[in-house]
């Protein structure tokens, strides 16, 4: 369970202080499929960065499974992310020198240091899940946008994270591919009970979500659960 208490983020721009997030209080249960929506500059990505342990709040506490992640140092935070969190990025962010298989394998060898047999089993299962089994030897520049995002999803899930953060995951995809990706993530959420938290403008994701949090000027103005 993720719990935020009075989380604020202030950016200093010279003399100017910018309150990007103001007293954020949120509780997220595992297995939720959450869409954070709001206009540009409302603080969606900042919330994602804070909850994803990429950034530290100026004030407040972020508890993930009772661990106060705001108190962890850089290395401990990196280890925590490696064990508990997955990321899906708008522009996929695959490592260009690694093949599809190796991109998915990267977190398992560089972060979790899993034995080869276990790695292979997990990767093959996910490759099948994202329907990329026959593309596993290819390199990112040989794939379409949709295929790259499938690989990115597999990479985010391979460490069995409790939470996956996705910042505009469908922004670079066409409608058909977006629908396929959303369906894929929804299926994975149901199958593995993985928590997905999206920062998005995409109505298709909002429609698929079972909780929609609306942010305006760094404050939650609406937080509703919907029947998807």
């Amino acid at each position: 369970m993720i719990s935020n208490k009075n989380v604020s983020k202030v950016y200093k721009m010279g003399e100017l202080e910018l309150d990007v997030i103001k007293n954020l209080n949120l509780e997220i249960r595992y297995g939720e499929f959450i869409a954070i929506v709001g206009p540009s500059g409302s603080g969606k990505s900042t919330v994602l960065n804070l909850l994803g342990c990429l950034d530290k709040p100026t004030r407040g506490q972020i508890l993930i499974d009772e661990t106060d992640v705001t108190k962890l140092d850089t290395t401990a935070l990196a280890n925590f992310r490696g064990e508990n969190i997955g990321f899906i990025f708008q522009s996929f962010n695959l490592i260009p020198v690694l093949s599809v298989y190796e991109n998915i394998e990267y977190p398992l060898i560089m972060i979790q240091n899993l034995p080869q047999a276990q790695r292979h089993e997990r990767i093959m299962k996910l490759l099948k899940e994202v329907d990329m089994l026959d593309q596993k030897e290819k390199f990112p520049d040989q794939l379409s946008g949709g295929q790259r995002q499938r690989v990115a999803i597999a990479r985010a899930l391979v460490t069995n994270p409790k939470i996956v953060f996705a910042d505009e995951p469908t922004a670079n995809l066409d409608t058909k591919t977006s629908n396929q990706i959303i369906t894929l993530m929804r299926n994975i959420q149901k199958e593995f009970n993985t928590t997905f938290i999206f920062a998005t403008h995409d109505e298709k994701i909002v429609t698929a979500a079972d909780r929609i949090i609306t942010l305006v000027d760094g404050e939650i103005i609406d937080d509703k659960r919907v029947q998807s």
């Binding site: 850089t74 990196a78 280890n79 992310r81 064990e83 560089m110």
Partner: peptide, 16 residues
């Protein structure tokens, strides 16, 4: 830089 950010986000420690 972006790639470094990606691997750092995934959990690669600064020492790695």
């Amino acid at each position: 830089i972006k790639e470094i950010g990606t691997i750092a986000a995934m959990g690669t420690t600064p020492s790695t």
